[in-house]
């Protein structure tokens, strides 16, 4: 859970950084998309590097989901399927100190998984093309984000990712043994909030810039 989660966070940081190239215009962005496919050449065949990353990501996603199901099943068994809501009393339904994010991990995860499928169909395979078909990744992206509901759907997904990472990043580090004192705990939690905010905001900057006319195809 923790290791695969951290691999995906790393991917998100790189992906977010890559998306910011949208600001440099079509040539630069499409060139970047092209380089994603030629990286590692001539050691690797065309798209070889990209496929290695895709396989690592796919294995991470599947392992992450499988671990989540295992944890969920154990949690159900240990709490009669009711989790934190297993007491008759309704006065402490939100627990004593738990974060809002910690409630959203399961459904947040499902939301993100659905988003990734939608997003791949949209910008990688060009199967869904709300802004029109194009062989240019730049044009696909910009045309897509000129439509308000596309931006809205990305916004919902990225907020879900933000919450998921707020708890997930902290939990991954703690599960790997990094939480060794109260001070460390404060720092790890602050780091998790920072990573969540950077990723959510960093990803949302290009779509909103497109929507408000700052970038055009």
């Amino acid at each position: 859970m923790a290791v695969t989660g951290l691999i995906m966070v790393l991917f998100l940081l790189v992906h977010m950084y890559g998306n910011l190239k949208l600001f440099y215009g079509q040539a630069e962005f499409d060139d970047y998309a092209y380089h994603l496919r030629t990286m590692g050449q001539p050691y690797l065949p065309y798209s070889g590097g990209l496929w290695i990353i895709r396989v690592v990501l796919l294995v991470s996603v599947l392992t992450h989901i499988a671990s989540a199901f295992t944890l969920w099943a154990r949690s159900r068994r240990a709490t009669g399927g009711r989790g934190g809501g297993r007491y008759q009393s309704t006065r402490a339904r939100r627990g004593v100190q738990r974060s809002y994010s910690s409630f959203t991990m399961r459904w947040g995860g499902v939301t993100i998984a659905l988003f990734v499928v939608y997003h791949l169909l949209h910008l990688t395979t060009d199967t869904i093309h709300p802004g029109g078909v194009s062989s240019s990744a730049y044009v696909r992206t910009v045309n897509g984000f000129e439509i308000w509901w596309v931006v809205l759907s990305y916004t919902v997904a990225l907020i879900a990712i933000g919450f998921h990472l707020r708890h997930g990043f902290w939990a991954a580090l703690a599960s790997l043994g990094a939480n060794t004192s109260r001070r460390r705990r404060r720092h790890l939690n602050a780091l998790a909030v920072a990573v969540a905010v950077v990723i959510t905001v960093g990803f949302l900057v290009p779509p909103y810039t497109v929507l408000f006319g700052g970038i055009t195809a």
Partner: peptide, 23 residues
């Protein structure tokens, strides 16, 4: 169950056992 680092345990622990013991 398995721990997902939510921290409710340490909040109710009468002996203030800190979350770092899990790490």
């Amino acid at each position: 169950g398995g721990c997902s680092q939510i921290g409710e345990c340490t909040a109710v622990c009468p002996k203030d056992i800190q979350l770092e013991v899990i790490s």
